[in-house]
């Protein structure tokens, strides 16, 4: 019983700390950010038309890579070369491609990969479309861009 009361007290303390953080720390961080200036992080969307191109980003920018494949075939886009020191994968999702009817079988699927730049540098992002059980050697398509990350 004593242990339960102790746990509840601890939970209360944890909740209070989180509550305090929300009230005091978040607004202060916001103020600090506001005081640092008006520079905003950008979000760059690239698709298959950017293949082979070079893009320039700043630290903190997001890059969204949108690549299509035929749904329900087993093929999917995978990173085969990504410098995780420079990029953080912050999201991966799919959406039914504009061309596709939602109920159609085997219709195109847009694969969306969201990356955030971590620090200045220069790197290539390489992706390949293949079946995971067949391996990347049996890719049917490739995508590559060159990225320059500035401070």
């Amino acid at each position: 019983m004593l242990a339960i009361i102790q746990s509840l007290n601890n939970l209360k303390k944890l909740s209070f700390i989180l509550f305090a953080a929300c009230i005091f720390i978040i607004p202060d961080l916001h103020n600090i950010a506001a005081d640092m200036g008006a520079r905003r992080n950008r979000k760059i969307i690239v698709d298959s038309s950017a293949r082979g191109k070079k893009i320039e980003l700043n630290v903190g920018d997001e890059i969204e890579i949108e690549l299509q494949s035929s749904g329900g075939t087993g093929y999917k886009w995978y990173f085969i070369d990504l410098d995780y020191g420079l990029f953080e994968l912050i999201g991966e999702e799919t959406r039914v491609s504009n061309k596709s009817n939602e109920c159609i079988a085997g219709g195109p699927i847009m694969h969306i990969y969201r990356l955030k730049t971590r620090k200045p540098g220069h790197s290539k992002i390489k992706m390949a479309c293949y079946r995971i059980w067949e391996g990347k050697e049996k890719f049917i398509d490739q995508f590559e861009i060159e990225v320059q990350i500035n401070q």
Binding site: G71, G72, E92, E93, T94, C103, G107, H111, R131, W133
Partner: peptide, 19 residues
């Protein structure tokens, strides 16, 4: 895509289209 044996039930991963 990673199924190799057993009885499949959906557990994780993004939607990949209809089949």
């Amino acid at each position: 895509y990673s199924y190799s044996s057993g009885v499949y039930t959906y557990t994780s991963g993004t939607y990949q289209g209809n089949h």
